Simulated assay, not measured.
Amino acid sequence: MANPTQQDTLHKFRQQLFEDGILQDGDTIGTDDETLLRFLHARSFDIALSKKMFADCQHWRKTVQGVGIDRIYSQTDPFDYPERETVFKFWPMWFHKTDKQGRPINVQILGKMDLSKLYKVCTPKRHWETVLANAECLPREVLPAASRVAGRHIGTTLVIVDLKGFSLSQFWQAKSIARDSFQMSQDFYPETMGELVIINAPSSFTIIWNVIKPWLARDTAQKVSIYGKDYQKALLDLVDAESLPASLGGKCTCKDLGGCEFSGAGPWLDGRKGWGPRSKARLEEANSEVMLSGAAKL
């Protein structure tokens, strides 16, 4: 919650954004206080710097991939698109339930990353579009749903990155897209990562971290915790066992939804396209798909 001084800055910031035509009612970036405060926080409540950041973001939203983020999002449902199973198999990054603070959990299993296999089925351009759609669904659907269930504003995520089996060769293969992803998140979705927990960090992680750290804003780097194999207690301090995937030391398997990695389980699915976690009909459909294809295509 903003203090009185910050509230005054917020009022001036909003006024200038509208007066300068940078923000208009109905813009999908959001016109709410929480959205504007994220940009102010990212620039230490300097109105001029925050305004430039916001303007740059609006330009990106209108021009990214030559069509803009709204077009990409309308054409790529992050929870249901044709290449989703393949993308999640070789670029495993998915939302899964919420932590003890009510924050959405984003899981990234980098040891399974294989861009060469992914790009045999999905072009690099198409893959990047799915990354963009996944990023956009956070403020559009995931955070609002988490806020609704928590009964209070939830503005950040808990990110869990599992490096089990992750090699230096995989890192060098994905270095460019990883850097672009970090940059996009910081520039266009600022202050949405509440905490980053890295687990199963290999001995080579020092090399990887020395490359990654300069990509991160100072405040972001301070939100990172790094663990080796003894990470279970740390995760269970943050996430109830019933919400943590069994593969990470929890009890959740999302058995009726084709497994945690494909389920997209969380309050953001409630009422979405006619189904939610408690929709018996949709669960039966998911089970049928698992039997037919080995993975639910949700």
Rank of each mutant, 00 (worst) to 15 (best):
W209A: 14
V211M: 07
V211D: 04
W215G: 10
W215R: 00
L216T: 00
A217E: 00
R218P: 07
R218I: 15
R218G: 15
T220C: 09
K223Y: 09
K223I: 09
I226S: 11
Y227P: 06
G228K: 14
G228V: 12
K229D: 06
K229C: 03
K229L: 06
D230C: 08
D230M: 13
Q232F: 09
K233A: 15
A234Y: 00
L236G: 08
L236N: 09
D237W: 03
D237H: 07
V239W: 03
A241S: 07
E242H: 02
P245F: 04
A246H: 11
A246T: 06
L248W: 00
K251H: 02
K251S: 11
C252G: 02
T253C: 05
T253G: 03
K255A: 15
D256T: 06
L257M: 13
L257W: 15
G258E: 12
G258S: 14
G258A: 12
G259E: 05
G259V: 02
C260G: 06
C260M: 11
E261M: 11
E261S: 07
E261T: 05
F262D: 00
F262Y: 14
G264A: 13
G264I: 13
A265P: 03
G266P: 10
G266D: 10
G266C: 10
G266R: 08
P267C: 12
W268G: 01
L269I: 00
L269G: 00
D270H: 11
D270G: 10
D270A: 14
G271K: 03
R272S: 03
W275T: 05
W275L: 01
G276V: 02
G276A: 04
P277V: 06
